[in-house]
């Protein structure tokens, strides 16, 4: 009995209990963010107009990819530098299917999941044989491989990309057509992704991943085959990002190899880090923040990267924990 209380007392230092306490606050905060997002069509109708609404949609789609990436970076300690590949792959599968005459959203999504899952399984199986810096560079290389493969698809636009003239329909309903239909579909997918990754992180599966981030050796000694857990996480993250790619193709009505570029993968990582890794709302906030700050800075100057770049350097040098942490601190946490 005494032993148990001792271990329970020690648990908070490992981060379990604060996480749960913030988890509840985080759940509410996340729901609040989603609620605000859900009201964006009404809000932008009053101020901002469709331009801002489009921006919000772009941020929401990227947030889906960023949240799925957080499952790898934040919870599993796997710094994947090729996550944009799944965005690109998802959008290309969608675009190619539409061009080839498949218009049903369900078959297209099925293809997206199948192909992105397959790509994740193969590249993940090879990448996860390595760790640390090697893993970063291998995922980077695989991302780049896909980028060049997409660029060379000359009958689907090659380097220039391809404009899509159709949108997928769900049993005859055009819920993925640009406008409010796509907005609410994206919102639903975002909410589901946010919920699912939160659930996964809290589950036994997620605890193995998080333990593996702290010490792969101990997890192995305890008897878990960490490789399999990580591979499963890698595939899950790839599937979510693939769906984000599907939504992106519907939103922009255009597919472009640069979606899969490594700069885009870098931006996704920036979103996760800025928002706060391994936190309930970090990746969501990070994605919204990055898209908004890009927009704000580019209104101020064309060369907004001159400001954004040093900002990232300063954040890497001096900031810890990201936006979600800041929110928790301001919210009277600790």
């Amino acid at each position: 009995m005494t032993d148990r209380s001792v271990t329970q007392d020690r648990a908070p230092q490992g981060g379990a209990t604060p996480a749960r306490r913030f988890g509840d606050a985080g759940l509410l905060a996340g729901l609040a963010i989603l609620l605000v997002l859900a009201l964006m069509p009404q809000i932008t109708a009053v101020a901002g107009g469709s331009y801002v609404l489009n921006l919000v949609m772009k941020a929401m789609i990227l947030a889906i990819a960023a949240i799925s990436l957080d499952l790898l970076i934040g919870y599993s300690g796997l710094v994947s530098f090729g996550h944009a590949a799944f965005l690109g792959l998802g959008s290309y599968v969608t675009g190619i299917a539409l061009t080839e005459g498949i218009y049903g959203a369900l078959p297209i999504l099925g293809l997206v999941l199948l192909i992105c899952g397959g790509f994740a399984l193969v590249t993940g199986a090879i990448s996860l044989r390595t760790s640390g810096v090697y893993f970063i560079m291998i995922t980077l290389a695989f991302g780049q491989m896909l980028f060049f493969a997409l660029s060379s698809l000359s009958s689907y636009g090659g380097d220039d990309g391809l404009t899509l003239w159709d949108t997928p329909d769900l049993f005859g309903a055009y819920v993925f057509q640009t406008g409010s239909g796509l907005f609410y579909s994206t919102l639903v997918v975002l909410a589901l992704t946010w919920l699912a990754v939160g659930r996964i992180a809290g589950s036994r599966f997620g605890r193995v991943l998080r333990a593996g981030k702290e010490s792969p050796l101990r997890v192995g000694v305890v008897g878990f085959d960490l490789y399999r857990f990580r591979l499963a996480a890698y595939v899950i993250a790839g599937l979510f990002a693939g769906v984000a790619g599907f939504l992106m193709a519907c939103h922009t009505e255009f597919i472009n190899p640069s979606t899969a570029s490594w700069q885009n993968s870098g931006t996704l990582i920036v979103m996760v880090i800025l928002g706060g890794m391994g936190t309930r709302n970090g990746a969501l906030l990070g994605a919204l923040f990055v898209v908004l700050i890009e927009e704000a800075l580019s209104r101020y100057t064309v060369d907004w990267k001159l400001i954004f770049g040093p900002m990232l350097v300063l954040i890497a040098l001096f900031a810890k924990g990201g936006l979600a942490n800041l929110l928790a601190r301001v919210g009277g946490g600790r």
Binding site: I73, V79, G132, I269, L306, L312, V313, I315, A316
Partner: peptide, 16 residues
């Protein structure tokens, strides 16, 4: 490594 990635990514954006 993540901090290094973030900082050097920022440098790329800036110098380019």
């Amino acid at each position: 490594h993540l901090d290094q990635v973030l900082a050097t990514f920022g440098i790329i954006l800036f110098v380019n």
